[in-house]
């Protein structure tokens, strides 16, 4: 895989998220309370809400627009709601974070 550096884990607050702008669209990179890092499309499967702006709990995020709960690991909506966003592989090396964008391109293709 082709890993692109996006910065340090310390750039993201715990239980928070930051965005990365890419040619594949905006990606939301999350850091959980226990320092696990996930990247998903910043685009809620419901009506496109910016998931990066939601409240992070456990390894899920609650969308800021209509409260769908999205799994950061699978990108799938949890509970009764149905839908999914694309997940992007993340690699953590020390404090440095990398994402593999090509995974998205392959999915898109």
């Amino acid at each position: 895989m082709n890993w692109t550096s996006i910065g340090s884990i310390t750039d993201i607050p715990r239980r928070g998220a930051r965005c990365v702008n890419t040619p594949e669209g905006k990606i939301a990179v999350f850091r959980t309370a226990e320092d696990h890092v996930f990247a998903i499309d910043d685009h809620c499967p419901h009506k496109g809400g910016p998931l990066s702006q939601g409240i992070v709990h456990g390894s899920s995020v609650t969308c800021p627009l209509h409260n769908w709960v999205i799994s950061l690991e699978t990108g799938k909506a949890l509970g009764a709601d149905e839908g999914a966003v694309r997940t992007i592989p993340v690699k953590v090396e020390g404090e440095q974070l990398f994402i593999a964008l090509e995974a998205l391109r392959n999915k898109a293709a």
């Binding site: 996006i6 702008n21 040619p23």
Partner: peptide
């Protein structure tokens, strides 16, 4: 601010 912006060239 976005955490990073990945340009076309780099991607």
């Amino acid at each position: 601010k976005p955490m990073a912006t990945i340009g076309m060239a780099q991607a």
